[in-house]
Write a protein that binds this DNA or RNA. Structure first.
Lengths: 217, 217
DNA sequence: CCTCCCATCCCCTGTTCGGGGGAGATTGCG
DNA sequence: CGCAATCTCCCCCGAACAGGGGATGGGAGG
């Protein structure tokens, strides 16, 4: 039994999504709908779902809140954003909140059905343009070196920490070294990357895949 | 006519990929192979291809260089990384260099065939685990607000610039305001985002979709 | 043995930043 | 009209940072 939640304010689109869900998940399923943020949050708190299709633009708020709520109460729920808004800011916000997919409603039904049916295999449901947008987020027009960029092991450790916003003192404590040593490593990093500030270092750290899970020291 | 380049050092895997390419691109195609970085770069410079399957781990270098070369000489070429290396650093490096896909060789042939055949529709060829990894790059376990985070227009402008590593003085010049005003906006940004350093600001800027194309001031 | 690289520590300097005040101008809303 | 928000600019100060110098060890390799 697949339990599905559809969050969408417009009645006809809600019906359209319901039809898509019925085709995409051919096992016996149970579809519930919500037209407002309030209703969606209530449903999310009361019941548990296997899949959720969430519109971002709700009359009384943003679907991001539904997504966050579902993530908290039941992390296994597969949450897919279904919207017309393709702004980078919303894409990033949805992914940050842990969306398993991001589909644009302008797509033909059969494409959405196919994407949703692949969800169970662990394949994220992403509209082509969204996937491309996400990948372009990583694009870099400057020189792309090998992942290590000739940084030594210790330097990469320091870079990862200062890019999280930690101060030299905190990095020193974290890595059990003197603050002066941290400063020395940072100088080497700056020289190798051709930069001269922590903000640039943070940018490069993300590019080098030393991605911080979250900031703050 | 689809012109395909396969870059792979191991003969049997090269043969395996050739078979996959033949199935994925059913139009009349022409498949060329290269076993080393040297050979691949030579081929990339001489001929032009519609699709390239590139292994990262070549005996005389990294497939990233092939990718970069193809991107420069013919940007329309669809470049897909086919490898066993799933490190975040390599994924980010490949995407930074402009890869159109990233497939793990451990996957069954039919999955790879399907992903490659969807390439022409603009759907990036990503192994499920890779796609998930990419999406997790955006994940954030802390409080996720709305995309604007209540930042005013001017504040977002300042944030975008300082996250690129620019100094207050440079931001002031860029936005035609006094350095003291920049400092004031930064204080507001820090208060609203609950942070206290530029590195954290840079992190949040990326999260808010104010993604810098490249750093430097 | 000597050299190169890495990591560790210390000194020094000037600049930048973070954070605390206050103050005037403009806009929009009730 | 008063009120709130935004943008603009100024003052101050201490802490943190950027960048230069030099010194000590330990390995790797010629």
């Amino acid at each position: 039994m697949t339990r599905i939640l559809i969050v969408e304010d417009l009645a006809d689109i809600r019906k359209w999504l319901t039809g898509i869900a019925q085709k995409a998940f051919d096992a016996p399923h149970e579809i519930e709908t919500a037209a407002t943020l309030r209703a969606a949050l209530g449903a999310a708190r009361k019941n548990s779902y296997d899949v959720a299709l969430i519109d971002l633009n709700l009359p009384d708020g943003s679907g991001i809140d539904v997504l966050k709520c579902l993530r908290q109460s039941r992390p296994e729920t597969l949450c897919v954003i279904t919207t017309v808004m393709g702004d980078d800011a919303w894409i990033v916000a949805a992914l940050s909140a842990g969306a398993n997919g991001y589909l644009l409603k302008e797509q033909p039904s059969e494409v959405i059905v196919r994407q949703l049916s692949q969800l169970a295999d662990g394949i994220p449901a992403l509209s082509p343009s969204i996937a491309r947008r996400i990948m372009e987020h990583f694009q870099y027009t400057g020189p792309v070196g090998e992942p290590d960029a000739n940084l030594t092991g210790r330097e990469k450790e320091v870079l990862a920490l200062i890019s999280r916003g930690m101060r030299n003192v905190d990095v020193a404590e974290q890595l059990s070294m003197a603050e002066s040593t941290v400063a020395h490593h940072i100088k080497s990093i700056y020289r190798k990357l051709g930069i001269s500030s922590r903000a640039e270092a943070s940018w490069h750290a993300a590019r080098l895949g030393l991605a911080p899970g979250q900031p703050g020291g």
